[in-house]
Design a protein around this nucleic acid. Structure first.
Lengths: 234, 234
DNA sequence: ACCACTTTGATTGTTGAACAATACTTCAAT
DNA sequence: ATTGAAGTATTGTTCAACAATCAAAGTGGT
């Protein structure tokens, strides 16, 4: 054991993994989770005093967390009135799908340059969804579908794109909470996802993009119909 | 004038135009401007106490502003050490161009669906740049080039994409400050911008996209070379 | 000169209280 | 029903305090 002495150099880089985080960030993470899971309904008002008491943090720290989530469009800040859980409307759905068409279709079309692992990650998401279907786990199917699209964005291999996708998909979760989408919503898309993945695995990225575009058209139409249904009831 | 009574319904929506803004947002705007203009050099540390004194705002308010700009990647927040003006490196340049290829090329390829005004805005940016060249106004050429690419992103017609482009281009300004780019950097691209615009005006969006892709390749290469030059001097 | 260790000083992280400014509610008056 | 005028609750912002952490200067032994 006289040792080469440089075993320490072979340790994996930890990057920012063990970065201590501020209270504001932890609070933001918590709130984000609650919003995505629907614990905090869209449109709900977040009282600084009550949430501060609940989480045992000061108002100042809480406000920092609010700024973070406001920038992610999960909260809307109305001056002198407070912060509310965002409540996306039909226009937001249209916009979200414009973004998705731009980013995801671009990612797929340039998929030929992506490393094999990136494509494999998409396949993993497909299988994750299929396993969830076998269990009858509708929640799991939805999660797997999100993972599928996050993996599609991952084809670009860009941290910034990854971050954008995370945000966009989080907003999309909010859309579902607004219109109380049926839990089976994603089920029909499982087979389509597999088809898209198979095309990519075979190197037919352009065809895959066309398939994906078709999915966007149908899904957007379906969501918008649900929204106009809601509008009529107001 | 017994009146129909519902003229008020015909009033244009004011949207958020007369939204009052918080101090934190105004401070963030100020700092953002200083960062983009290079008044605050990349890597510079922003002391809470000194900046707070300078702007006459409390530390708490200042920290809210810092959170905003941190989320825009213009500031980096190191726990217990402070906030610094972001200092993009070569990896950031690569990533920024990945994003630009995804977003801008996607925008151009789908340009056929964009309204004529959106295309016209691109032409306006081209002419703005050419006028700046006639004046020998290098600063103006750079600004016009930014406007050009912002207008390209505008083809999508999505507020979220517009916001992304604003952020990406702001980061790109930081890249220029890091490597002290020559003021004539953008000049050679003026003619290429016009060519790309003419193609789009003629409806040849796919060809325009190919041209734009060529621009990205050259510009990225040029920036990366400048960076490796810097690295050698360290 | 060089290494480990402590001490000191400065800065950030977070809290709690305070006050002004604004919004919401209630209720009276027309 | 609409308007106006309190009164109350909430947000916007500041300030002061203290703990936690980092950076730098010293300290001593070799």
């Amino acid at each position: 054991m006289t040792a080469t002495g440089d075993w320490i150099d072979n340790l994996p880089d930890v990057g920012g993994e063990l970065e201590r985080s501020s209270t504001a960030e932890r609070v933001a993470d918590l709130l984000r989770g609650h919003i995505i899971d629907g614990v905090l309904a869209p449109g709900a008002r977040l009282s600084e005093e009550r949430i501060g008491k609940k989480f045992r943090v000061s108002r100042n720290t809480l406000r920092e967390a609010f700024r973070l989530l406001g920038h992610e469009r999960l909260l809307v800040h109305e001056f002198n009135r407070g912060v509310f859980v965002a409540k996306p409307d039909a226009a937001d759905v249209v916009d979200l799908f414009r973004v998705r068409r731009t980013v995801e279709l671009g990612a797929v079309r340039a998929g030929g340059d992506a490393p094999p692992e990136a494509v494999a990650a998409i396949g993993a998401a497909v299988e994750q969804g299929e396993r969830a279907r076998e269990r009858g786990d509708w929640e799991g199917i939805g999660t797997a579908n999100m993972a599928f699209h996050r993996a599609v964005g991952g084809l670009v291999g860009s941290p910034r794109i990854d971050e954008m996708m995370r945000q966009i998909l989080a907003e999309l979760r909010l859309v579902f909470h607004v219109m109380a989408a049926p839990r089976e919503f994603y089920e029909p898309y499982l087979d389509r996802n597999r088809a898209i993945y198979e095309l990519m695995a075979a190197g037919a990225f352009d065809t895959a993009a066309e398939e994906l575009a078709g999915y966007f058209d149908i899904a957007e139409r379906q969501l918008l119909d649900a929204f106009t249904g809601l509008a009529r009831r107001d």
